[in-house]
Simulated scan of single mutants.
Amino acid sequence: MATKKEKKTRIAAVGDIHVRETDSGKWKDYFAKVSEEADVLVLCGDLTDTGRTAEAEVLVEELKSCNIPVVAVLGNHDYERDNQKTIRKMLIKQNVHMLDGDSVVIGDVGFAGVKGFGGGFDNAMLGMFGEPMIKQFVQEAVDEALKLDGALSRIDSDNVEVKKIAVLHYAPIKATVVGEPEQIFPYLGSSRLAEPINRREVIAAFHGHAHIGTLKGETSKGVKVFNVSKPILVKEGYDPPFFIFEV
Rank of each mutant, 00 (worst) to 15 (best):
L148G: 02
V14F: 05
A112H: 00
G120E: 09
D102L: 08
G130N: 07
D23Q: 06
T50S: 10
L43A: 02
K115W: 14
M98N: 03
E21K: 12
T22N: 12
G45E: 00
G110T: 03
A54K: 14
G15V: 01
V60A: 09
E61Q: 14
P132C: 14
C66N: 14
M90T: 08
G25V: 12
E140L: 07
F117L: 11
E80K: 08
I17P: 04
I92S: 13
M133K: 07
G116K: 10
G107Q: 07
G75L: 15
A32T: 05
V73K: 06
D143M: 13
L148Q: 11
A56Y: 01
D122E: 04
D29E: 13
G107R: 07
A124T: 09
L41D: 05
V109Q: 00
Y30D: 05
V104F: 04
I134Q: 14
S103Q: 12
I68C: 05
L41F: 11
G127S: 14
S103N: 14
L99R: 11
A12N: 04
D39N: 11
D102W: 05
M133D: 11
S24T: 10
V40L: 08
V105G: 06
D143A: 10
G110H: 01
D82R: 10
H18M: 02
S65N: 08
N76R: 06
L146Q: 12
C44E: 01
N76T: 09
Q136K: 07
K85V: 15
L47Y: 03
C66Q: 06
F31N: 03
K64C: 13
I92Q: 13
I17C: 05
E140D: 12
